[in-house]
């Protein structure tokens, strides 16, 4: 009997959703988690849109793009949220995304005028350490020092790829030499962010690759001000996270509405303390208390998407060669 009731419930649910339009947003897993922005974003958007917002979590940015490519033009997604500048060129080449037509007053350290990809948050990559640790002041002095670091594999992690681009953007063709210098500082390379951060918290290394905003979590959520991010002279590479509308969406108006909502105060004020990144448009109320204590780099580095895509394979080969010695 129970499965009959279950089937009836399913039918009922389908009938109900036929009346309210449904908007499907593919995003990365940590966005939809109970501790990410997902639940609040969903509630806030559904208040005004008269629709059902369905968030689907797919591991991380790279997996997200792979999923959309796998589904192609018949993708179930209306909007994809969670790609970054390193993935943008490949995403653009698929031709699966449509221009957003949204304008916003971005608070990004770089100019932004991409017609297809709309940023929703950003951060600077940085090495996070305990305040008591005397951190080096540049990538080069880190390479020369005996400080220990934890990094991530660029093949399985988007921040891992970010570090590759950081070294490339700062040192160009000298990047290989910097990596050779860094090789003896690297305790290990992990698959994803969580493993590396977990190991850092257990004291396996002096510093871990993360974001300048990471100490804000410890400060705001745990009232622990012992963590800080090392500021490097060469400047810090940025991660800009973007969303885009699928060209083949059957809900173009709703998708456009979601993208406008995404750069509005309501969405943007959820970001800092759930995604622990800087909002792309600073909300009217400003940043949450505690963010003003964060270290800010003097210089921002970011390769243009095409440049990043063109350099990627070479940068990976350099990295592998230097670390495989």
């Amino acid at each position: 009997m129970r499965h009959l009731a279950f089937a009836a419930g399913l039918l009922g649910a389908t009938a109900a959703s036929a009346q309210t339009p449904e908007l499907t947003v593919y995003t990365y897993d940590s966005f939809v988690s109970d501790w990410g922005p997902g639940p609040q974003v969903e509630a806030a958007f559904e208040e005004t849109c008269g629709c059902d917002l369905k968030l689907v979590g797919v591991e991380d940015g790279a997996a997200l793009l792979a999923r959309v490519r796998l589904e192609g033009a018949h993708s179930g997604a209306d909007v994809v949220l969670g790609l970054d500048t390193n993935l943008m060129a490949a995403a653009h080449k698929t031709g699966l995304f449509a221009p957003h037509g949204v304008s916003a007053d971005f608070d990004l350290p770089v100019a932004w005028d991409d017609p297809v990809f709309l940023p929703y948050d950003w951060g600077w990559f940085a090495f996070v350490h305990d305040k008591g640790f005397d951190a080096p002041a540049s990538l080069r002095s880190l390479a020369d020092s005996d400080a220990t670091i934890l990094i991530r594999d660029p093949r399985s992690s988007t921040p891992g790829l970010g570090l590759l681009m950081w070294v490339r953007a700062a040192y160009g063709d000298e990047a290989g030499a910097i990596w050779e210098g860094l090789a003896d500082n690297i305790v290990t390379v992990t698959k994803g962010w969580s493993e590396a951060y977990g190991l850092f918290m257990e004291g396996e290394a002096d510093m871990v690759l993360s974001y300048t905003t990471s100490p804000a979590y410890h400060l705001i959520a745990e009232e622990d001000d012992s963590k800080t991010a090392a500021i490097f002279d060469e400047g810090h590479y940025m991660q800009v996270e973007v969303a885009a509308m699928m060209a083949a969406t059957d809900q173009p108006e709703l998708a456009g509405e979601f993208l406008r909502f995404m750069v509005s105060d309501r969405f943007q004020s959820i970001i800092p303390t759930t995604n622990w990144m800087y909002p792309a448009v600073t909300p009217a109320g400003g940043l949450p208390e505690g963010f003003e204590t964060l270290a800010r780099p003097g210089k921002s580095l970011l390769l243009a998407p095409e440049e990043a895509a063109a350099l990627r394979d070479q940068a990976l080969a350099e990295w592998r060669a230097a670390l495989s010695r």
Binding site: D29, S30, W35, S194, G198, H218
Partner: peptide, 10 residues
């Protein structure tokens, strides 16, 4: 477990 770690909640 992964999601908690991903949200810094070690």
């Amino acid at each position: 477990v992964y999601r908690l770690m991903g949200a810094y909640r070690m």
